[in-house]
Design a protein around this nucleic acid. Structure first.
Length: 228
DNA sequence: AACTTCCTCAACCGCCCCGAT
DNA sequence: CATCGGGGCGGTTGAGGAAGT
């Protein structure tokens, strides 16, 4: 026996949203905010599944969405983040304000994947294609032992290229994005919150506090931050 | 102009995580 | 501790438009 469906499918619309449905959803969320998605459709007078409403809002109707083509900088950032995180689209989206996980996922599959292949780079491993074909295992830095799972993972995860150094925090200095509280300039890797990676070129030891992609500081919880 | 193939991306599906009970 | 329910995520699908023949 599976779990009960998230909504009464017999009485819900599917497929493309109409203008009227969009208007209803936007009006309801403007008046009441994002809340219980399960009960929202009924409250808003929509014959839609709650999940469908959430997706429509997150991916299309949110006022802070950027829209339009991805810039070259965004392309490179996505590639860099994907090389570190793999298909963690929501985490990647958290580093691209105004972009959604779905949008990035689609963009990756339709554009960036091809772009990397044309550069001779395997889009899964982020290694040169010849090298990626030959590689059957991945090597971690010695510090990966902190994970304690390498024996389980390394032989079975050839598609992950987590060639970064992961270490416990030495200092609990909060990572404040979008502020000028930092006195020193950061390299590209550190600006992503991936201090100590192989790409880190800055020598500022005060930034060595571990805040991998803002996981410690909660920076990645962008949606919650935006709604406040 | 008509047809076919390719491409894009909005939307759906099913699973997983996590907090509440 | 086990179960339940809601939210969130990643993979996949398919409609519609663009490009090619």
């Amino acid at each position: 026996m599976g779990r009960s469906p998230c909504c009464e499918k017999a009485h819900t619309n599917k497929g493309a949203w109409t203008k009227e449905e969009d208007d209803r959803l936007v009006a309801y969320i403007r008046a009441h905010g994002e809340g219980c998605w399960r009960s929202l459709p009924k409250a808003a007078g929509l014959l839609r599944c709650g999940k469908s409403c959430r997706l429509r809002w997150i991916n299309y109707l949110r006022p802070d969405l950027k829209r339009g083509n991805f810039t070259e900088e965004e392309d490179e950032l996505i590639i860099k983040l994907h090389s570190l995180l793999g298909n963690k689209w929501s985490l990647i989206a958290g580093r691209l304000p105004g972009r959604t996980d779905n949008e990035i996922k689609n963009y990756w599959n339709t554009h960036i994947r091809r772009k990397l292949v044309s550069r001779g780079i395997d889009p899964t491993t982020h290694r040169p294609i010849n090298e990626a074909e030959a590689a059957t295992t991945i090597s971690f830095n010695s510090s990966n032992k902190l994970l304690g799972k390498e024996e389980r993972c390394s032989p079975k995860c050839p598609d992950l290229n987590l060639d970064l150094r992961i270490s416990p925090p030495h200092q609990q200095e909060p990572f404040k994005t979008g502020t000028s509280s930092r006195s020193s300039t950061l390299c590209f890797a550190c600006s992503l919150g991936i201090q100590n990676s192989k790409d880190c070129s800055c020598t500022n030891t005060t930034n060595s506090g571990f805040d991998f992609l803002g996981l410690k500081s909660g920076v990645l919880d962008y949606r919650r931050l935006e709604m406040k």
